[in-house]
Structure formats: structure tokens, C-alpha cells
Amino acid sequence: MHERRDRYPGYDVLAKWSGPSWNDKTRDVITRRLSIAPEPRFFTRDEYETVVAIADRIVPQPAVRPPVPIAALVDRKLAEQIMDGFRRPGVPRDGEAWRRGLKALNAESAAAYDKRFAELPEALQDKLLRAAQSGELKAAEWGGLRCEVFFKHRLGRDIVLAYYAHPTAWSEIGWGGPASPRGYVRLDLDERDPWEAAEAKDGNDATARRSNRGVR
């Protein structure tokens, strides 16, 4: 694994929590999201464990900070029956598609390596996921659900959306975050408001860090 460097050193989108960029409704929504405990409600324990392992491969997270509980975020979305609202023929509704896909992935893992997916080394997990992405997995457990459709439209989509719904991810990519009532003033190329993340340029963290500390 290569070393991760902060592109936006010291930037924390939550520093704006009490400022004019956040309103009550947003604070309510994010409070709820931040209070989600890393345990399943929709998934079974076994399924949940597999989702955790998959999420680690789709969106690997650095060990130096508390991880975003991606699997729990996906779990809550399914538990609350928040759906995309469109699916291909033969594809079950979102929650059922997850259950079937997880079962099939574990079946593939067992057939190839005689282990559950979560127990595989990372390289083999990646290998299986790549095979799913390119439509090569054909175990009977998939049923009418094609593995590449599951990978692209359900598994990956839900995990990626869950991770980038979290303030930790927002800080990581230097996004301004919630913005109401205050939006932005300086809009043009290379323009930045004092309440936006400063990017470390030319390896010079100090200037960006100082600016990011002032974000409110």
C-alpha cells in the first residue's frame, strides 16, 4: 500500500457545524448519520461481516483515523427501504439483491478457496471482486442476477454512496460540505472562500493547514 498524504491538511468539514453554512435540518440529518453504530439491523451477522470485507476493498480507509462505518450505512439504507426505484428484469429489489449477491459471492469464495469471502486475503478478495465486475462469476446462487449487474448497480453503488455521504470523506476530498444559508462568493477558477478547504501545494502543508484551521 502506498502512503496516503492529506491533500487538505487539517481541514475538517465539521468545523463549520455551528457556522452559517449549516442549518438545523442539515445538522439533524448529519447527527443521525454520525450516530449510526457499526452493527447490522438489516443484514445477518454473517452477511454484515461480508459487507464489511467488501467495503474495505471498494473504499479502503487509512488506519490513522476512525473508519467510516460503511457497512452500517448501507445496512441502515436497506433497513429503511430507501431504494433506487429501478431495476432490471430478474433483479430483485435492493435488499433481496444484496442478500442473494452476498450469498453468491461467499459461494464463489468457498468453491474457489474453501473459505468465506471475509476470510480471504485482500489480494484474493480483489480477484473475486474483479471477476464479478467483469461478469465472470457463474455460480448457481446468482440465479437471474448477473454478477456484473450486481457489482455495478448494487454492491459498488451502495458502498461508494455510503462512504461519500460521510463528513470524513468530505474532508478527505476538500469539498465545502453543507452550504445553507451560506453558499459561496468566489466562484471562478482558482478562487476560494475563507470557509473552503485549502489544498496543500508543492508539498507545502503549513500554509494550507493554517488556512484550514480558520475554516468556520
Partner: peptide
Amino acid sequence: MGGWRNWSQNIL
């Protein structure tokens, strides 16, 4: 939006 409470934007 936000009136004077959002002065850091609205003054500008």
C-alpha cells in the same frame, strides 16, 4: 439568504 446572520457572504 440568511440576511445579516450570513454577513460573511451577503456583505460581499
